[in-house]
């Protein structure tokens, strides 16, 4: 464990809490992509199957359980409890355009051709692009609520901090996982445009709106 990984995990946890808070406090999931949230639930489910087969640490197990539970909790709030507020007209990104190629790629490029490893690889690839429906939704509506933009900033920062963690681990532990690093870089790059808007607008007290 190093400071980058820990702050990355905290940012990830913070993002999830912010999203749940937004939905709970406003009693609405307007502006949140149900498709991105469905893919995140799929990401956690396929990645953390090793909870059953492998114990790493209490921290690791606890965080994994929190991430799985919160992702299904978010789906419950979006698709059952506050279903009426779900903005499906703007959530039109086609999930199969991501899930199918990612599934194919995880069969082709992985560390080991075994079921658990392929599922882990699938989750890493899918996570890297799972935010696209959310970003697409913001580009369609042209704006995001401030709390939603805080959520996205925390969520994007998490993988950016993981990149620093991988640099650290490469130099100090000799650890290098090409699949995670490449996917993590792709994931972070997808947020760059959003980061720019967030810093130039939300940090100055304005709402996140897209330039016309």
């Amino acid at each position: 464990m190093n400071v980058f990984r820990l702050t990355g995990d905290i940012a990830h946890l913070l993002a999830i809490i912010l999203l749940l808070m937004k939905i709970w406090k406003t009693r609405s999931c307007a502006g949140v992509s149900g498709k991105s949230q469905m893919m995140f639930a799929l990401v956690f489910t396929t990645r953390y199957l090793d909870l059953i087969t492998n114990f790493i640490s209490l921290y690791n197990t606890t965080m994994k359980m929190i991430f799985i539970a919160s992702s299904y909790g978010t789906l419950y709030l979006m698709f059952l409890k506050f279903r009426a507020t779900y903005d499906s007209n703007h959530d039109t990104f086609r999930m199969e355009f991501l899930v199918v190629p990612v599934a194919g790629l995880s069969f082709l490029v992985n560390h080991d051709f075994s079921p658990l490893e392929i599922l882990w690889t699938f989750s890493i690839y899918l996570e890297s692009v799972a935010i696209l429906p959310q970003l697409f939704m913001i580009s369609k509506t042209g704006e995001a609520e401030t709390i939603t933009s805080h959520y996205l900033f925390a969520l994007g920062s998490y993988r950016a901090l993981y990149i620093l963690n991988w640099v650290y681990r490469f130099y100090f532990e000799g650890f290098f996982d090409l699949i995670a690093v490449v996917a993590g870089c792709v994931q972070t790059v997808l947020y760059c445009d959003f980061f720019y808007l967030y810093i130039t607008k939300v940090w100055k007290g304005k709402k996140l709106t897209l330039p016309a």
């Binding site: 990645r47 690791n60 560390h111 882990w120 993981y162």
Partner: peptide, 10 residues
């Protein structure tokens, strides 16, 4: 499998 590395990250 000797090179196998467990996934210890989240």
């Amino acid at each position: 499998m000797e090179e196998e590395q467990e996934h210890d990250e989240l």
